[in-house]
């Protein structure tokens, strides 16, 4: 059943509840359940964290390489360059998130204004 499968006001909310809330909070509740039982530096959690981190990294990659909306109109090289510049300055200038965001945005905007 797709998002607009039913022509009712409530179906999209049910869709979001099942595909969004249930799919997300199940993991949080599982964390509450396991929280008293697993040590946070246990070996299995290293693997779980690594898979989870790679997944979010995949999301980052997809947002830069295959974005939607007006960002999709920009050149791929500009987006990758902006993200790389932002990340590099985050690493180089004391791991400040604001610095990384500012430099990345500056490169993107400069690139868009010059083209």
């Amino acid at each position: 059943m797709t998002f607009d499968a039913l022509d009712t006001w409530w179906w999209p909310f049910v869709y979001i509840l099942i595909a969004g809330w249930l799919a997300t909070d199940s993991w949080r509740f599982l964390g509450v359940y396991l929280g008293g039982r697993l040590s946070s530096d246990s070996e299995i959690l290293v693997l779980v964290r690594a898979v989870a981190t790679a997944l979010v990294a995949g999301v980052i990659s997809s947002l830069v390489i295959a974005p939607s909306g007006p960002l999709a109109e920009t050149a791929l090289l500009l987006r990758v360059g902006a993200a790389a510049a932002g990340f590099a300055s985050y690493i180089l200038f004391g791991r400040r998130i604001l610095v990384g965001i500012f430099v990345g945005e500056a490169v993107l905007v400069a690139g868009m204004l010059m083209s």
Partner: peptide, 11 residues
């Protein structure tokens, strides 16, 4: 999925 270890660490 990554939320589980975060919650576990907080509990």
């Amino acid at each position: 999925m990554r939320l589980t270890p975060m919650v576990v660490a907080l509990m």
